[in-house]
Structure formats: C-alpha cells, structure tokens
C-alpha cells in the first residue's frame, strides 16, 4: 500500500533547559513564563545564565544590575555577575 501525504501540520513545543520547577529568583515566576514586564514568553524574554551558575530572566537581572545598590553582584551568591556572550 502506498500512502501519499497531502498535507500535515507540524507542532512543536519548547522550554528552557532548566529544572522544571525552577523560578527566577528576582520575580519568582517560572522560567518558562515571562518576566513581569513582558507579555509573551519566548525569545523576546530570554534567560541569562551567569558564570556563577545562577539564572534569571534577562530583563530581571538587567534591572537589578542597573541599580546602584547591586554593585554588579549576583543576587543569589554575591559574586560578580558575568555571563557568556553568545
């Protein structure tokens, strides 16, 4: 028997490569959700993984690093917050 595929709809899901129940330490929203200033999750609201191993929504950590009191430190471990540019 031969089957001719005339049409198909591809569906894909995605998630960030972090533990399922992990939340952003700054806004406490799951990583698969958005930071509070975004409406839709995804590439527009990415995660940032610091060299110290702590991850945050990019917008959340940038807000924090932008404040004077942060002194550029990771809010989890107080090491300097650095990340790999990719």
């Amino acid at each position: 028997m031969k089957v001719h595929v005339q049409k198909y709809s591809a569906v894909a899901t995605w998630k960030w490569d972090v533990a399922e129940d992990e939340v952003c330490g700054i806004c406490r929203v799951q990583f698969d959700g958005t930071c509070p200033s975004c409406k839709y999750p995804g590439e527009d609201c990415p995660l940032l993984v610091g060299k110290c191993g702590h991850s945050f929504h990019m917008h959340c950590i940038f807000d924090w690093i932008g404040t004077e009191s942060s002194k550029g430190l990771c809010p989890m471990c107080r090491q300097k917050f650095e990340f790999e540019e990719s």
Partner: peptide, 9 residues
C-alpha cells in the same frame, strides 16, 4: 539597607 537583594523575600 546595604545587604538587600531581590532574591530575599
């Protein structure tokens, strides 16, 4: 004060 960080609740 000085030791506040956003991961504190």
């Amino acid at each position: 004060r000085e030791d506040w960080k956003p991961v504190l609740n």
